[in-house]
């Protein structure tokens, strides 16, 4: 069965969605990702959707679910690289993906995760996300 690869980079997980996902594949990703978060005690998840040509309400819901579930598992989710046409369409569709953090690209998303983790830990850096 096809799966979307999840890469581990330090305390973060990186998912790059490059295929036109059918719904089951998206559900599998949600399962796999939550499992990996708990296995690896990851503190952050980056989902790169720069190659996605559309985000419809189903994918929107999956992204929202992933964000909520990972928060419960103590990891922050950042969705990165949404294309302008996709963003405009989502807004017209009526979805604002409230509660999901976003960033322009993987690099900026990573920086956002680091700074927010740093803040929430009161700067004590017990999670060595900086390394």
């Amino acid at each position: 069965m096809e799966r979307i690869a999840i890469l581990q980079i330090g305390h973060f997980l990186l998912v790059t969605i490059q295929v036109d996902m059918h719904d089951r594949l998206a559900m599998t990703l949600q399962d796999d990702l939550t499992n990996r978060i708990s296995q690896t005690s990851a503190r952050g998840v980056l989902i790169d959707i720069s190659a996605l040509e559309i985000v419809d309400s189903f994918i929107g819901r999956i992204l929202g679910n992933i964000a909520k579930m990972s928060r419960i598992l103590d990891a922050e989710t950042v969705v990165v690289g949404m294309q302008p046409a996709v963003a405009i369409t989502l807004v017209e569709l009526g979805l604002s993906l409230k509660g999901i953090r976003t960033s322009l690209n993987v690099e900026k998303g990573m920086a956002l995760l680091r700074s927010s983790l740093g803040d929430s830990e009161g700067g004590s850096m017990d999670g060595d996300a900086e390394k």
Partner: peptide, 16 residues
């Protein structure tokens, strides 16, 4: 590109 994205997204919603 915007209109492509809109109609494809609409198609996806309705197909589902």
């Amino acid at each position: 590109l915007i209109n492509q994205t809109k109609i494809v997204t609409g198609a996806s919603e309705l197909a589902r």
